[in-house]
Each structure stands twice: as C-alpha cells, then as structure tokens.
C-alpha cells in the first residue's frame, strides 16, 4: 500500500506493507539509520522516534498507523550548519556517549522530557528525569554521565 506521511518536516510517500515496522522503513527504505534496533520488542528504546510529537519505539509502530501522521527522527534535530541540540552537545561534553548505540534513542527520550517540561506537562524532579529515560537501556555508562548531561541541559534551558 502507499503510505503518505510527514517525515522530518517533508511529505513522503512510500510503498510499504501495512504491518511493516516504521523502524525498517526508516532504516531500510529511507536510509535514516539514526534509530537503531537493539531488541525489536520495545524494551531497549534504541529505536525511539516521535510520532505526531509523541515518543514511541519505532519497532512497535506498523506503517498502517503512520499514514497521514508526522514522524520526527534524530536526524531532524541536527540541520547542516546549525548547532547541535543542547542535549547532544552536553552528551559530548560529559562523555555520556560511549559506544553510541543507545545515544540516538536516549537523546530522543531526553528531548521528549525537555519538551514536555517546556509545555508544562510534567512535574520536574530527579526521579521524573530518571523515569523519562528508564525505557532506554545503556550498557556502557552506568547512566551517571547521561543524567548529568540531562541535568545540565535542563538547567541551561532555564525555567
């Protein structure tokens, strides 16, 4: 079937089976490989993207449910020539990305939390920050530096 949707601000129309996973379409058909497959079961968060502004695991989204919607991937956060998102920059500064495989999903989860915070949808505290990234497994860092990057990004963003 033909699926039309917005991808990182542009309208795309592609041929896909209705139960194809959004993750496969992004990676295989559209060449957007920031989202990674770590488990294929929605348990590791490496494939996180925004669907209509909502953070989801793209391995659990069938293309049938992408039709007419808007998808935002990590690629949209960085435009050529433009500065990195503060969380991306801080993840570099804190050495919070080691092997980097979880980083795209982790950044999407952190950005989601910052956006919700800016929209006044969440009550911010340490536990809420941890909960926001608890669906993203990192095996390298023990999370300490990732949490530091998120703390600093929120602090920079200000109240």
């Amino acid at each position: 079937m033909k699926v039309s949707f917005r991808l990182n601000g542009e309208t795309r129309s592609i041929e896909s089976a209705p139960l194809d996973r959004l993750l496969d379409v992004l990676r295989r058909d559209l060449g957007l490989t920031a989202a990674k497959e770590g488990c294929g079961e929605g348990e590791c968060g490496a494939c996180s993207v925004f669907l209509d502004g909502v953070l989801v695991c793209s391995c659990l989204v069938p293309m049938a449910q992408v039709r007419g919607r808007s998808v935002e991937t990590l690629e949209a956060l960085t435009r050529p020539g433009a500065p990195l998102h503060p969380l991306q920059r801080l993840l570099i500064e804190t050495d919070g990305s080691q092997c980097g495989f979880c980083s795209p999903g982790m950044i999407m989860a952190g950005v989601d939390y910052m956006r919700r915070l800016a929209r006044g949808e969440v009550e911010d505290d340490h536990e809420a920050r941890l909960r926001a990234i608890a669906g993203n497994i990192c095996r390298c860092t023990g999370y300490t530096k990732i949490v530091e990057a998120i703390d600093r990004a929120i602090e920079e963003a200000g109240p």
Partner: peptide, 23 residues
C-alpha cells in the same frame, strides 16, 4: 584534559555507521 571524543558528534547525531547502517 577532557577533549570531545573522536566520533562523539557522529554518535549523537546518528551519523556514525554501525555495520547494519551500511548501504
């Protein structure tokens, strides 16, 4: 010192090429 790591930028932007990312 703590300079930014090699490939750190590519890792946080998703440009880093892992084996399954190669076309």
């Amino acid at each position: 010192n703590r300079p930014p790591q090699v490939q750190a930028r590519e890792r946080v932007t998703g440009e880093a090429q892992y084996v399954d990312d190669l076309a």
